[in-house]
Design a binder for these strands. Structure first.
Length: 876
RNA sequence: GCGAGGAUGGCGGAAUUGGUAGACGCGCCAGAUUUAGGAUCUGGUGUCCUCAGGGCGUGGGGGUUCGAGUCCCCCUCCUCGUACCA
């Protein structure tokens, strides 16, 4: 029979809530050490919590409880990232207002989180859709506007007709919307932009000092994409305008044999000759009609059209043709390039296709057989650069260009300004007023927040045709909201709303001072609590959320609202939890099995044609043969074994509520941590949960007599622990402490299991040892440990105890097992004191057991003694 | 293509600075208890052989070392990210 976890867990959850056990006081002693441990707050979706959420949340909860035991003032809050597309779409699907569904979802999420026993300070809960919260999101926008970091611009945007909104570059994956996978097209639109590019250099440099996963830092570096080179101006024959290009290889300028403009480049129309105009215009039309996906992924083959004009290469005044091609992106650099086919693979492919000249300006090494050569080497065919290496040639060319006035040194970033408006209802309204004459201003800070108007019909209007201007839902808001009169002037409010990232850019600050009406955050509190000491969340936010939040943080730093340059000192990503491993066997229509090694070579169509179908098969019918799994009944039939991402369509989603009902919250927490390293991707296993559940029951029975439901008579208050018991306890303290510090929760749990296995062998259990052990268990399994603590009739509650410290002297074991090796192979073992000197050890080893006979007839060359571990005799 | 990470029993995973590979859990096998159990307890469990012993074993190949999962070189495969960024 299982211990009464349901009853116990409810009891303690109620106790913690009623007594506000984990409340972080508003006032604090500035000298007390603090620890701010933060989770990425969830998006309260309609489907509730899944098992991925409690993974990171349990990890941070363990840290929070551990740090409290260690005497830290701990901030461990939770809130809701509740604006955004999915909430709105869910609301549309169910025909209810997003405010209603959002509130319902939040209540469900909160209740689910509380059922897991997380020690959040619920008095600090924040909600991005609360006017008292988004007042400050709008306030930050006002500051951005005043600093010139927010501006309206006609920009080519990523327009998603299905969603009826524009999307940021980061919200597009493989040319499709991240949400829903709808096609995305480029079209110009007047939009709010945030000048994140102004912070590019700082966002790049400050990464170095962060304790973040290297992969995440690297992704941000790539996203920012700094490259150094030069801008060069090319005259266009017969025109006044110059074509400016960015290049990282100014040293190859003598090899520039043509130029390419992006189809959207503003000079295209002007320089196109009448003769070429029809071809050019049809190419531009084609390009604009292509989605990003078609333009990149499918366009392996280069395409382009000659404009009819020629540019003059500034180094030698040679005439070179100007083309347009969609392999040049309008959004990067200047939207135009000088093409150097001999030293650039893309240009080479283009030149080859359109038969354009190729001039080598870097001497490739002997035997080089490739086409474009991008490596280092002496400059050739390059007049005053000849003989120089790439690096020197670059330098010399930049100096020359600057002297001639036809170019200059330039640092370029891939990072573009942040497209900050969305044509949606469920988002923060912009605190912006339009005067109707093309002039904008921001709302007075005293009048914030600008509320989101109450609307019946908040649905977006999908716009299929690129030519029609989209109408955001707020354009249909009540007149009283839409217009605003001040000093006799009637202003129109902004109809776009902010993207979902806005609210999550700064929420970690609001937790510190969640109810402040006067300020975003009190400076004293900010100074005490920042930085976030540990931030745990999914790797999917590596660039989006984490880059935007860093940007806003730096702006707030410049405004002196915050005192730290970076918000999150240490970052950890929890790994994804996959569904239970599935074994799949393949069958033909006639029921005959087909081996997976054959099936895996087939395309889906071929599978269909041959009538081969997949069938899930139970693990017990499978054996391993070599490197593969095969059918036990026919070892020639290979079976596919893998774990899939949890998804509704696959039907492999685990609901934490079910686990809690069957095994309890402590088992859920423990299992999530026991599965493997926090950062690793790992498959769910129901029998693994059962294993943990058995452990918790064993732990319970160690203390509680099941028959009588009273304290076990083995627990003895008056007896003193013997050396062996103390050693086991202190080894456990050491192991668990070090493992928690290093976020190695799986091995910490294994240490608890070892302790319980040991303690089960003891005829009597010294109370002192057992209560210390309960403290060690508490961060992981807070309910069961607290309940046992109470039944032991101990002082106060467990949550207010102190973390034990291990005594190194108690860890010492005198007698250890030594290994005796001959030529590195283990031949004998000896139990002996650790303190025996090397020489004695060596003597003992030579006489031990079979060693003398094994050494017979051999010459000892060397003997290696590692004290406390081994003796290795080298002989031949 | 590029960047990052990884490969250890039937499975999830352990293994401080190179020093007893496989901790802990699952699964499996045997036994005990039980009216019964998918409950509990005890023991076993990398693999092979001629089994009181020995050989082989951390994706593959080479190297350094008395000694390599761990260090060096080459290769294969997997995962994640990214992709015409001039």
């Amino acid at each position: 029979m299982a211990y009464p976890f349901t009853e116990i867990e409810k009891k303690w959850q109620r106790y913690w809530a009623e007594n506000k056990t984990f409340k972080t006081p508003d006032t604090f002693d500035p000298d007390q050490k603090k620890f701010y441990v933060l989770d990425m707050f969830p998006y309260p979706s309609g489907s509730g919590l899944h098992v991925g959420h409690p993974e990171g949340y349990t990890a941070t909860d363990i840290i929070a409880r551990y740090k409290r035991f260690k005497g830290y003032n701990v901030l461990h809050p939770m809130g809701w990232d509740a604006f955004g597309l999915p909430a709105e779409q869910y609301a549309i699907e169910t025909g209810t207002h997003p405010r209603v569904t959002t509130e319902k979802n939040i209540n469900r999420f909160r209740q689910q989180l509380q059922a897991i026993g997380f020690s959040y300070d619920w008095d600090r809960e924040v909600n991005t859709t609360d006017p008292a919260y988004y007042k400050w999101t709008q306030w930050i926008f006002v500051q951005l506007y005043k600093k010139g970091l927010a501006y309206l611009a006609d920009v080519p945007v990523n327009w998603c007709p299905e969603l009826g909104t524009v999307l940021a570059n980061e919200e597009i994956i493989d040319g499709k919307s991240e949400r829903g996978g709808h096609p995305v097209y480029r079209r110009p639109m007047r939009q709010w932009m945030l000048r994140i590019t102004e912070y590019a250099e700082r966002l790049l440099n400050d990464l170095d000092e962060l304790d973040w996963p290297e992969s995440t830092k690297e992704m941000q570096r790539n996203w920012i994409g700094k490259s150094e080179g030069a801008e060069v101006d090319f005259k266009v024959e017969g025109h006044d305008q110059l074509i400016r290009v960015f290049t990282t290889r100014p040293d190859t300028l003598f090899g520039a044999t043509y130029m390419v403009l992006a189809p959207e480049h503003p000079l295209v129309h002007e320089i196109t000759t009448d003769e070429q105009r029809p071809a050019v215009e049809s190419y531009i039309r084609e390009a604009s009609r292509k989605s990003d996906l078609e333009r990149t992924d499918l366009a392996k083959e280069k395409s382009g059209v000659f404009t009819g004009s020629y540019a003059l290469n500034p180094v030698n005044n040679k005439k070179i043709p100007v083309w347009i091609a969609d392999y040049v992106l309008s959004s990067y650099g200047t939207g135009a390039i000088m093409a150097v086919p001999a030293q650039d693979e893309r240009d080479y492919a283009f030149a080859e296709k359109f038969d354009l000249p190729i001039i080598r300006t870097v001497q490739p090494p002997e035997g080089f057989e490739g086409k474009a050569y991008t490596g280092d080497g002496p400059a050739i065919n390059s007049s005053f650069l000849n003989g120089l290496g790439v690096k020197e040639a670059k330098e010399k060319m930049i100096v020359w260009l600057e002297e001639q006035g036809s170019g200059q040194r330039k640092v370029n970033y891939k990072l573009r300004d942040w497209l900050f408006s969305r044509q949606r209802y469920w988002g923060e309204p912009f605190p912006v007023l339009h005067d109707g004459k093309g002039h904008t201003s921001v709302v007075d800070e005293a009048e914030l927040p600008v509320p989101l108007p109450e609307m019946e019909d908040f649905k977006p209007r999908p716009v299929k045709e690129n030519e029609t201007e989209p109408q955001p839902p707020l354009s249909r808001a009540p007149e009283s909201w839409k217009y605003y009169e001040k000093d006799g002037v009637v202003y129109r409010r902004e109809f776009n709303t902010m993207p979902q990232w806005a609210g999550s850019c700064w929420y970690y600050l609001r937790y510190i001072d969640p109810h402040n009406d006067e300020k975003l955050i009190d400076p004293e509190k900010e100074k005490y609590w920042m930085n976030v000491d540990l931030y745990v969340g999914g790797a999917e936010h590596s660039v989006l959320h984490l880059l935007y939040a860093r940007f806003w943080h730096k702006v707030l730093y410049d405004l002196k609202v915050v005192s730290t340059k970076e918000p999150f000192k240490k970052l950890v990503h929890q790994g994804m939890i996959l569904g239970e491993t599935e074994y799949t066997v393949y069958k033909k229509k006639d029921g005959r099995y087909v081996s997976f090694d054959y099936v895996s070579t087939l395309s889906p169509e071929e599978l269909e044609n041959q009538g081969i179908q997949a069938e899930r098969i139970d693990e017990s019918l499978i054996v391993k043969s070599g490197d593969f799994f095969v059918l036990a009944e026919d070892k020639n039939i290979r079976v596919d074994a893998r774990s899939f991402k949890m998804s509704k369509s696959r039907g492999n989603v685990i609901n934490p509520d079910d686990i809690i009902r069957q095994y309890g919250a402590d088992a859920l927490r423990m299992y999530e941590m026991f599965m493997g390293p926090l950062e690793a991707m790992k498959p769910w296993s129901m029998s693994g949960v059962e294993g943990i559940s058995r452990f918790l029951n064993r732990l319970w029975r160690l203390f509680i007599d099941e028959d009588t439901d009273t304290l076990s008579s083995k627990i003895r208050k008056e007896i003193r622990a013997d050396a062996g018991q103390l050693r086991v306890l202190h080894q456990t303290i050491k192991k668990i402490t070090e493992d928690i510090e290093n976020l190695r929760f799986n091995t910490a749990i294994s240490a608890m299991m070892i302790f319980v296995n040991e303690a089960n062998k003891w005829p009597e259990l010294p109370l002192d040892v057992m209560k210390t052990f309960l403290i060690l268990v508490n961060p992981f399994a807070p309910h069961i440990s607290e309940e046992i603590w109470q039944r032991l009739n101990l002082e106060d509650i467990l949550a207010r105890q102190h973390w034990p410290q291990y005594n190194p002297q108690l860890l010492e074991v005198d007698e250890v097992e030594w290994v005796i090796q001959i030529n590195g192979k283990i031949r004998e073992k000896i139990k002996a004191s650790k303190k025996i000197p090397r020489e004695t050890m060596e003597q003992m080893a030579r006489q031990q057991g079979r060693i003398p006979s094994l050494l017979a007839g051999k010459t000892i060359r060397k003997i290696i003694v590692v004290p406390g571990k081994l003796v290795n005799i080298v002989a031949n």
